[in-house]
Design a protein around this nucleic acid. Sequence first.
DNA 1: GGTATTTATTTTAGTGCCTAAAGTAAATAA
DNA 2: TTATTTACTTTAGGCACTAAAATAAATACC
Lengths: 412, 412
Amino acid sequence: MALPSIDTSRLDNTLAVIRTLRDQGPAARIDLGALNGISSATVTSISAELLQQGLINERPPETPRANGRGRPKTLIELDPQAACVVCIKLSINEIQLVVGDFAGQIRHSEHHAISTLTLSAADLEALLEDKISAVCTQQLRGFQRLAGICLAVQGVVSSQSGTIIWSPALSFRNAPIAPRLAERFHCSVLLENDANCIASVLAAQPAYADCNNLVVIMLGYGIGMSVLINGVPYLGANGSAAEFGHSKYQPDGALCACGRRGCIEAYASDYALYREASDLLDLPTGDSAHPSAQQMQALTQLAMQGDPVAQRIYAQAGRALGVGIANVLALFNPDLVLITGSGVRGFDAMQAAMHAAIDDALVAELRGTTRIESCAWDRDMTCMGGIAMALNATDGETLLDSQAKSGSATCL
Amino acid sequence: MALPSIDTSRLDNTLAVIRTLRDQGPAARIDLGALNGISSATVTSISAELLQQGLINERPPETPRANGRGRPKTLIELDPQAACVVCIKLSINEIQLVVGDFAGQIRHSEHHAISTLTLSAADLEALLEDKISAVCTQQLRGFQRLAGICLAVQGVVSSQSGTIIWSPALSFRNAPIAPRLAERFHCSVLLENDANCIASVLAAQPAYADCNNLVVIMLGYGIGMSVLINGVPYLGANGSAAEFGHSKYQPDGALCACGRRGCIEAYASDYALYREASDLLDLPTGDSAHPSAQQMQALTQLAMQGDPVAQRIYAQAGRALGVGIANVLALFNPDLVLITGSGVRGFDAMQAAMHAAIDDALVAELRGTTRIESCAWDRDMTCMGGIAMALNATDGETLLDSQAKSGSATCL
DNA sequence: GGTATTTATTTTAGTGCCTAAAGTAAATAA
DNA sequence: TTATTTACTTTAGGCACTAAAATAAATACC
């Protein structure tokens, strides 16, 4: 039972104003009131505090006056320097570091090739500390504070305890990495599944704004999923919810990277497709258990050009994906299933078989009104989502902190 | 984005007091404060209003004084007469009507044998109106108001629109029944899936109180499921979430009542078990497509007594159930999966195969810490849950209503 | 039996947050 | 220059809460 609490309306309203400014950009007090269902008098009061705390700025009036008569609006905007967050994406053999400012804009991005599978837990911790320190020294001049760090990891993570339970990028398990970093950098550290980060970005797009139940499936080396219920990632009891890739297509079917048989991932992931294909087709040589983007590109192209063997392999993947999605529809009944990730490059070759499998598996009543769509992907989306989530998670702290020192400016 | 709202704390706190009294029985103001995180001064104020509105009563002090010194507690309790709700359970060839009072106690229960599959939508509406009217006339004397009606239905329902989308008990589809009844009886009508009602009852039990993510699987003629996330049933976009019975075991497998192939239900439901068994075993004659409790009892008994054919059939059902549960674990990662329903009578015969299938399907990291348990079932649980849900849903209205007439007593 | 002590409830005084309405500011239109 | 329009700020008042004081109703102790 939810405890009915003391009045938190001032905090709620202040956070709502900050988030509206972040999502929609500079806005007038009267509009902030309308958007958030509060009176403009209250916005005046809130914005006076935020100004005093240095979290927002008033925009100078535009010289070429906007349309309409009456007193012109005075726009307020987040002070980008008020805080910053760092997002680190950890994937197989690569880490990406991104810095975002208080207004949610990306300020800096860097990639590092690292053979992640050879790291020990201590190595990873040292590596991350090192990279984050370097970014702090080089990129965070002028920011009032480092509000938080988001670690976006492929695999199963426990956000609550900040533990990486199991990641395909790492050879060790159960690493409580977030508390370590939090202690080292004196800020809150958010540990997130990469699919949840991407889903948060997608959910913020106007085209998907009306989806209260959104499922995002990420095709790539592995297969990930995120379920957003009213915009919030569904995590389950210990963070291993939404493991679509390891739901079943065929009991006793193909071997999966997890060690079990018949997982969707064992049919429709990059490594599964390439495993099937490499014996039968003339494809670029290389580590066929960890196919590169070039290798996958070659395979996809064969299917697109009509090669029957490649087409058969993609159709099989589509069927597995379709049965998996049918289960997702039956169990989650989402408004929308969005398929993305680097693997969407081959989606056209899977699509027909996938839809056939879904129609075959479920009667219309259970398919419901769920839309199933694919969506373009780029590799920066994860960190954009991580930045947004880290800011959201730390706004309360930032507020408290700036109330405490209330104006006495200290820089990093 | 959630709109930060005007201050609803008085309403929240009042509802919290009412619910605490319903869940825990009579309580003192000071305890109500402690339980809900509000001051006893506030409870005094709230309870004064509720007394004036006739929703609660003060208990006379107990004559043999309780232990301890100091001023004795004055217990307040819900006035059972302040309101009542009716729950109707609609299942194959039977409807049950139950009356509950404002304190959540069952006051009356009746069963009617009805051949539900021959009803038209209009017939059903007329039937329900008739039965509810009769109950109102005979059973609701003395209650201040009929706060609401809960219709608990097997199958897919849209709670939002009050439409029965698809039920195995009915031969028609898409019946907007709830608005009709609401109009007829001038009260709010809640349409719920039967599994959600049962899950609500189970979730309220102290043994399962710490489960934020609870999955309840109902074995019976069909197979139903309810997912409770923080105590609230997860409904999905149009109410067809948690259709575990129609998630897949084997693409192109056994034929299901839904018309598709390979559903879990096509292996582990009563009709599936009996279909397999009736050709091979000497079982009571009768409609083997809709086996009775007696028929199922006979089949279960054979398996329990060691009949190898019956055991093989139950083991197969267990495997299907296991694969289905593995998918549920991968996708929902609940704290607890509770297996109940009339079909638990045969659970012992399925259990070993089920656990083997789960272990086979999922690595330990994905099985996580989920407990999988079975739990006894009785046929009144659905309506108990319906009563509880209806009361919860209508407390706000009851409050408003009694504020409006504020003391001027009118009886039904 | 009469006080002291303990515990529960009610009353009082004060705070925080919000809103509507009135007042002020800053523009354009006439 | 004045009227009108629109945005923002100030004022006055209300509601809900809490802490602390006051009151109530018991038991414990002498």
